[in-house]
Design a protein around this nucleic acid. Sequence first.
DNA 1: ATAAAACCTCAACTTAACTTGAGGTAAAGT
DNA 2: ACTTTACCTCAAGTTAAGTTGAGGTTTTAT
Lengths: 160, 160
Amino acid sequence: MAEAIWSVGKVAKRCGINVSTLHFYEQQGLIHSWRNAGNQRRYKPEVLRRISVIKAAQKVGVSLEEIKQAFESLPNNRTPTVEDWQQLSKNWQQMLDGRIAYLQKLRNNLAGCIGCGCLSMTSCPLYNPDDKLAESGSGPVLLDQAEQKARAQQEPNASS
Amino acid sequence: MAEAIWSVGKVAKRCGINVSTLHFYEQQGLIHSWRNAGNQRRYKPEVLRRISVIKAAQKVGVSLEEIKQAFESLPNNRTPTVEDWQQLSKNWQQMLDGRIAYLQKLRNNLAGCIGCGCLSMTSCPLYNPDDKLAESGSGPVLLDQAEQKARAQQEPNASS
DNA sequence: ATAAAACCTCAACTTAACTTGAGGTAAAGT
DNA sequence: ACTTTACCTCAAGTTAAGTTGAGGTTTTAT
C-alpha cells in the first residue's frame, strides 16, 4: 500500500535539491539506490526521510560526516523500522539540547559581555570562552607564565 | 591605563588561533592593524574583542561574510565605544533568539516526527520543512499538479 | 655580535559540499 | 517515428575558510 518507487528527478524536486546532489550523497554513502533496466537510479520512499534529516541537520551545522555516522546506526540490509529512527531521533535530541544550551549561554553572555564596557580579559567569558561557554577542546590559551607576570603589572606589551 | 599594544604572535596565542588566520582576517577586512618601523603588525586590544566575537559567531554557524557585515555597524575611524558594541550585541541577540527558536522547533519535530512511524508526506513537517521550520527561501517544492493528481490515487510512481 | 625566534609577502594547497559541463543513453510525449 | 526531456558517467570547477611553504627581514636573547 505505502509502496512506491522514485526516480532521481522526482526525489530532487520533492526535496528541493539538485539531481547532482543526490548523486553526490550516494557517492558519499548517505543514501542508496538500485538501478532499473536502463541503468537509471530508483529509490525507496525511505530516501525522502534521509534527505529530510540531512537537510535539517545541515541547517544546524552538522557536517555530512557526522550525519553519515548517525546513519550508520540504521540497518543496511533492511528498511529502517520505526524503532531505528526513534533511536536516531533520541541521539539527535541530545545533540540539539546541547546546541540550544550553548546558544542560550552565548546569548546571555553577549548581553552582559559584548554590550558591557568591560575589558577584563581575565574574567570576561567572551575573552575566555573555554571557561564559560565551550566544551570543545583546543581553544584559546593563556600566555605563558613569564608573560602573565609581565601583564600583571600593566596590560601586555610587545616590547619589554 | 588600559592601553597596550599587541603583536600578531601574542594575539594569536591569546585567542588560540594561528598567525596566518590573523593575516587572513585582516585581508578579509574583519580586523585592522598598523605597522611598526620594521613592518610588523601591531594591534589595539580591541582586536581581542573582535576575534572573540568572530569565534563565538562561527561556533553557531555564522559566516565570516555575515560577521563582516555586523562589524560594519562599528565605526572605522575611532575605537568602538560601549554603545557601538551594545548595538551589535542587540542585533546578535535577535539573531541568536531566532536560531534558538529554530533549534527548539526542530528538536520538537524530531520527537514527534523522525521518531514516529509516520510517512505522511503531505503533513509531516520534516518532509515539508518549509511549512513548519524554516523561514529561509528556496526550499523543497511540491510536485506539480499532474503529479499530485497521480499521487492522490496511490503514492508517486516513476512509470505510469 | 650572533643565533634563534618572530615576522613579512605571496602563491599554492586543503577540505567540505556541491555544481557545471561534455559527451552519450533511456524514457516519455505527440 | 522522432523529438524532447530525463538520465548516465567522469572530470574539472567553485566557495568558504583557512593552512603550508618558500624565501627573506626584524627582534630578542645570550
